[in-house]
């Protein structure tokens, strides 16, 4: 039940991407670049990369608090000279510290299957989520061998679902604190809700593109 709810949540997060991937992809040219290595395995393009900089003191506090720490990753394969991606794939990784067993439980959800592990320490658990090896990027049929492609990565830490944000807006615009029927009576709600403007869609977002380019097999 929990897994299905989690999967639904992941689906909700990724659904808008598949519908309008180009809309959520940050400016490709403005991204910093990082080392990403590619390998063709059978008919699949796979990538190796990492973003360990997602780990900081706040993350340590968050994870050890016993509440889940989640990274939702999206990888866009973009042909040179184009802005719309030719392929999009994603992964969700979650770390939960088991307060009583004192281990880190990780859960990785991809389109190719789910994987659950137990890590003895945070470093190891973080490696599961932030160091990806053999990450399937695309099938060869969507990669035109005549062109070179680069990979763009968007990794969101503890993203808030659009549904949750919508619900928040309801709460803060109508804080249930007045029965007055005047248009201006939402004022306290509006100012209590100003934090919404400071609230990002995630705790942290890491964006980068591959230094290297890859061609079809």
């Amino acid at each position: 039940m929990k897994c299905s709810a989690f999967a639904v949540a992941i689906g909700l997060m990724l659904a808008p991407l598949t519908a309008a991937a180009a809309d959520v992809l940050p400016d490709f040219d403005a991204m910093g670049s990082r080392k990403v290595t590619f390998v063709w395995e059978r008919a699949s393009l796979k990538a190796n990369f990492g973003f360990r900089d997602a780990l900081d003191a706040k993350v340590v506090d968050k994870v050890t608090s016993g509440l889940p720490w989640t990274v939702v990753l999206r990888a866009f394969l973009i042909r040179d000279g184009q802005s719309a991606p030719v392929a999009l794939t994603g992964q969700t990784c979650r770390i939960t510290f088991d307060l009583w067993d004192e281990v880190y439980r990780t859960e990785v959800l991809t389109a190719y299957g789910d994987r659950k592990q137990v890590a003895p320490n945070l470093e190891a658990a973080m490696a599961t989520c932030t160091e990806l090896r053999g990450f399937v990027v695309a099938h060869q049929r969507v990669v035109d061998h005549r062109f070179r492609h680069r990979l763009a990565i968007v990794a969101e830490v503890n993203p808030i679902s659009p549904e949750m944000i919508e619900q928040l807006k309801r709460w803060v615009s109508r804080p249930a604190a007045s029965t007055q029927l005047r248009p201006g009576d939402a004022l306290f709600g509006s100012f209590a809700g100003l934090f919404m403007r400071e609230l990002g869609k995630s705790d942290q977002t890491i964006v980068f593109r591959s230094e290297a380019r890859v061609q079809g097999p």
């Binding site: 910093g32 290595t37 900089d53 190891a124 160091e131 400071e198 990002g200 977002t205 964006v207």
Partner: peptide
């Protein structure tokens, strides 16, 4: 929270990816 502007997060290159 302290949101991070996606465009502003240009973190330095990470260490080489290693197998989890």
């Amino acid at each position: 929270q302290e949101p991070h502007d996606p465009a502003s997060v240009q973190a330095p290159a990470p260490p080489l990816p290693t197998s989890a």
